[in-house]
Structure formats: structure tokens, C-alpha cells
């Protein structure tokens, strides 16, 4: 009676392994392309010359693409760290007995807040914080906070009552239950929230160049304003690849925390 179950299990595991192997190849390839383009966009200059013969400078040269990439990643990393720290802390607070009263309010704030267009949030940060790095970080952190809070609450909510009862019944303290049972079980959903937040922030950081923050959006916007399509393509390619690679990395991270439920 066990045999068919076991063998179908094995078969699905096999296709999973195969899919994962081809996924690794794709991800590896994309990372190589991303790094190569960041470091060696200059090598493509003849190509851009051929594509856009009417342009005198078809390669963005006001800053190195490596600098732009690092600035972009820096923006996203700093803001995501802030959002993740505050977001998980807030999510934990409103799911503990002390903060449970705040849960409905925080949940609806997170839901309503996400209907705000990221570009509008970025624009509104300008009168509050001026131009440059600061408003972009503020807008990105604030906006990125919401999916993290939402998913932390949702993830902790998926932990079954019986599992919690078993944990208490086995003599775990509150901290032990949180660290050993609740957080590991909620982690997949929390990471999904961080993934959403980071992907949105990669996109919004691009627009950050309109408020004066250096990012991969800088050549893109410069190209749009100066009617230089080559700049647009260079910026768009890099930021697009960055987003896809990040998303794939998060997908793998999420998979680590699924326990067959």
C-alpha cells in the first residue's frame, strides 16, 4: 500500500531535481550576463554605433555602469534592510498579546498604503526630505515596509493552532516557540513579502534618479530626456536583469522554507 505513494514521491522528487538543475543553469547564465554587461558594456560600443548611427555618443559615459549598479544595489539594500527590520518587528509586535490590539489598524494601513503608487510616494517624499539619496531611501523604505508587515502577519497566522498547542504542551517558552516554531514556519511567507518589497524597490529606485538619487535609472532617464535611445537601452537592460536575477534568487530562498505543507 505504501509502495505507489513512495514511488510517485520519488518520481516527483526526480522532476523537481531536474527542474532545479535547469533553473540553476538559467540563474547562473543570467548572473554571468549581468556581471559581464555591468563591467564590459563598453565592449558593445560598436554594436550601439551600428544600431544608432545618428547618435554621436551611443555609450553612456558620465559614470561607470559599475558605479551605477553599486549605487542602485546600495539604495535597494539600505532601504530593504530598514523595511525588513521595521516590518518584521511591527509584524511580530501586532501578533503578540501586547500588540494584538494594533493588528487591525496596522493591517489596514499596510493594505491601503500599498494602493499608493510608488512613484507618487517618491514624489511626496521630496517636499519632506529634499532631493537626492534621502527622499529615495525614505520612500523606498516606507513603501517596502508594507508587504513585509503584511506577510509577517499572514505568515505567523498560518501556523496551526495545534502546532502551537503542542509547542506549549512540550514546555517551550514564548521565545522558544517564536524562534523555533513560529518564525521558521512563517519564514516562507515572510520571504515572499520581502521579495515583493525588494522587486518593487528595484523598480522605484530607477525612478529615484528623477529626484536626484544616482541609480541605473540615471542613464535611462537621461536617455529619455536627451532622446538618446542607446542610453535608455543600456539602463533598462541592466536594471531589468538585476530585477530578474534578484527575483530568481528569492524564489530559491523561498523554496528552502517550504515543508511540504
Amino acid at each position: 500500500m505504501n509502495a505507489p505513494v513512495a514511488s510517485s514521491h520519488r518520481a516527483s522528487r526526480l522532476t523537481q531535481v531536474r527542474a532545479r538543475a535547469s533553473g540553476n543553469l538559467v540563474l547562473g547564465g543570467l548572473i554571468i550576463v549581468l556581471v559581464a554587461l555591468t563591467l564590459g558594456m563598453g565592449a558593445l560600443e560598436p554594436l550601439f554605433h551600428a544600431l544608432f548611427p545618428e547618435l554621436r555618443n551611443p555609450l553612456y559615459a558620465r559614470d561607470s555602469f559599475l558605479n551605477l549598479m553599486l549605487a542602485h544595489i546600495g539604495l535597494v539594500l539600505v532601504s530593504s534592510l530598514i523595511s525588513v527590520t521595521i516590518g518584521i518587528a511591527a509584524g511580530l509586535f501586532v501578533t503578540r498579546p501586547v500588540g494584538r490590539e494594533f493588528e487591525p489598524m496596522v493591517s489596514s494601513l499596510a493594505a491601503i498604503g500599498q494602493t499608493f503608487p510608488p512613484a507618487a510616494v517618491l514624489a511626496i517624499a521630496v517636499p519632506l526630505a529634499g532631493f537626492g539619496f534621502a527622499p529615495t531611501i525614505i520612500a523606498l523604505s516606507l513603501y517596502g515596509l508594507l508587504p513585509v508587515i503584511q506577510n509577517t502577519i499572514a505568515g505567523l497566522g498560518t501556523v496551526p493552532q495545534t502546532t502551537l498547542e503542542a509547542a506549549r504542551g512540550n514546555g517551550m517558552s514564548r521565545t522558544q516557540i517564536l524562534m523555533r516554531v513560529e518564525l521558521p514556519l512563517a519564514m516562507r511567507v515572510i520571504i515572499a513579502g520581502i521579495r515583493v518589497s525588494v522587486i518593487i524597490n528595484i523598480g522605484t529606485a530607477t525612478i529615484g534618479s528623477t529626484v536626484g538619487a544616482k541609480s541605473l535609472g540615471t542613464p535611462l532617464i537621461a536617455g529619455l530626456v536627451g532622446n538618446n535611445l542607446a542610453y535608455v537601452i543600456q539602463g533598462a537592460l541592466l536594471v531589468g536583469l538585476l530585477a530578474i536575477v534578484t527575483d530568481l534568487l528569492f524564489e530559491r530562498l523561498e523554496r528552502r522554507y517550504s515543508f511540504g505543507g
Binding site: 523598480g203 525612478i207 539602463g235 531589468g240 530585477a243 527575483d247
Partner: peptide, 10 residues
Amino acid sequence: TLPSIAVFGL
């Protein structure tokens, strides 16, 4: 996943 401005640009 792609940033909107990148899609517009491309």
C-alpha cells in the same frame, strides 16, 4: 518583475 520604466524604455 521588470521595472516599469525599463519596459517603457525597451
